[in-house]
Amino acid sequence: MDAIDTVTRNHVRDIIKGGRRLDGRGLTDFRNIRIETGLIQNAEGSAQVDIGNTRVLAGVKLDVDEPMEDTPDQGNLIMSAELLPLASEKYETGPPSPDAIEFARVVDRGIRHGECFDLKSLFIEEGKVWGLFVDLYVLNYDGNLFDAGLLAAMSAIAGTRIPKYVNGKADREDRTARLSIRNMVSSATFAKIGKSIVLDPSGDEEKAADCRLTIATDGETVRAMQKGGMGAFTQKEIDELIGVSLNKHSGLKDMMTRAQV
């Protein structure tokens, strides 16, 4: 951690001790969220999400694929993430970092265990299924990638159109069939900073945080969780944060629904 990070960290921690945040938000407020879908016409589905200055673009591609051995009647969901060097001075080129892998896997678990679509609907014929590839491109980093990533992936998947299958290949000229969506999930990520806990941490708040907790729900039940960082949460805190996450879902779901073209 360099000197300027230490100064930022101390500043954020001092302010939060007084129950306030750097940007004046309430402790359980999101920053402004903007969702735009369909930007990438060549993709089968796409969505760009801004949470404050954090920007994540999700692109969906469907390729003719072979099913996994243990699920011959299901398509495949493959989620990857790139922390692009253009998104932050902290990101470097090279193979995926543990942070990038964790990011992709947590978003994957939200979508998969949220049962957002039926993988069986991606079955084509014996030995042939659709592989649904979701790539999360981080374009600008200012904290809370996880919530932006899940909103982007969910919104992109919700607008995905399936190419026609012709002679063993995908005909992308004809993409009229829609992927049928069964459930919508969203997540809420919290950062614990000293004794305070805040929703949707900014980049500076993440620098100051002891740990974070991401909770993905469909408003009724919890579908995925991930704690990160060296700090600790108590049982009571976890229960309260689940309550907040369940309450935040309907607003986020409305935003995703409205963003569909």
Binding site: T221, K227, A232, T234, Q235, I238
Partner: peptide, 30 residues
């Protein structure tokens, strides 16, 4: 879990749990 204060140091979850089930599961782990 760090047992001295039951601090939760690692928490991952997937599947489907209600708030009540989740609370029961955490108590069981402790």
């Amino acid at each position: 879990i760090a047992p001295r204060n039951n601090d939760v140091l690692l928490l991952q979850m997937d599947g489907k749990l209600t708030r009540e089930q989740l609370s029961k599961a955490v108590s069981m782990a402790i």
